[in-house]
Design a protein around this nucleic acid. Sequence first.
DNA 1: GTCTATATTGAGATAGAC
DNA 2: GTCTATCTCAATATAGAC
Lengths: 206, 206
Amino acid sequence: MTTTTEAPRRGRPGYDRDGMLAVIVAAFNDHGYDATSLGIIAQRLGLSKSAVYHHFSSKEEMLELALEKALGALEQVFDSPQATEGPADLRIRHVLRGAVRVACEQQPYLTLLLRLRGNTDAQRHAMERRRAFDQRLRRLFELARDEGALREDMDPGVAERLTFGLVNSLVEWYRPDGPMTPDELAKAVVAFVRSGLRVSESRDYR
Amino acid sequence: MTTTTEAPRRGRPGYDRDGMLAVIVAAFNDHGYDATSLGIIAQRLGLSKSAVYHHFSSKEEMLELALEKALGALEQVFDSPQATEGPADLRIRHVLRGAVRVACEQQPYLTLLLRLRGNTDAQRHAMERRRAFDQRLRRLFELARDEGALREDMDPGVAERLTFGLVNSLVEWYRPDGPMTPDELAKAVVAFVRSGLRVSESRDYR
DNA sequence: GTCTATATTGAGATAGAC
DNA sequence: GTCTATCTCAATATAGAC
């Protein structure tokens, strides 16, 4: 189920790198990456600082591994015929659902990615990959306009930014143990993006 | 035009507290509040660290002043009969426009507010005020549902979160020197939220 | 109002014992 | 694989001269 390089369990039971990473990313999201000290991380893991260094060579390596999870998951959304073939509005809907799924399933990792400010090379590189994702999305919206599937009073670029601003904001409040499943949430997002909040004439879209 | 306590200019020309605060908040947003050192701030202001302390008693005071700007502006959106009287859908539209305006005009301050994680008392207090704002919004959406102005297949709480997730995401890409005015943006947001992106039957809403 | 100098604390990272 | 102890550097904040 993991989407990135598998972590061959080593050392004694309890933590593999993936399990440690989950704890570490939670700390990054609580304090911000830069402001998260190795002391805090070691405390949360129940280890000493130098024990942590036995598993990760630096704080930046932790960040890179975490960002790879989010970026890998996002990029996978486009690895499907449904994202690259067929009418643009259907392709958008597919990507929209995939992005909502990523927001839910990879929530902490995506949160970390979305908060990057590009102060180091690794951060800038990750942001570059994210921008590439955004550009593919934008081309889809332009295609939708050309196919007459997008309302004409809205610029495709603005439509794309508003849509994925909405999707990205999910990480701010979605909780896996909350009342909604990712599928239900995806359905709500698709409905919102397609036809807004007003009482609708409710042709079902599919 | 400032919405908060005015800063009586003191000291030699160049910086008043408001002008300094703009520089400081930009630094906070670039590095994250916790990770922004007074050294960085002093450098950006072209002052020594201790000179900065002559204007602000602590780093936390800078944060509080900045957050007050964002929160004050948001709360003002509700200080209008249009936000408290009349049909819920019209009230929502008014608040929506006001929130877009705040996102544009107070962009750096709102960015700072939206990124808080609640690690100090001051931060938690600011987040509490923001939550109060969100709750007023949520009651508006519940009212809209009761008045039959909200599509029935969407929970009002989810509708509110998606809507203001979209609005809050504006701070991530809106630039004052970009091609869109706040008014144009507000119009696009209202249209999106009301009727989505599909080709519409285009009754103009007003 | 701004400076240099400094007190104090905690950061990331390493050495080397067990 | 984990520990204690420590290195080096930079953080917030203050003292006191100009």
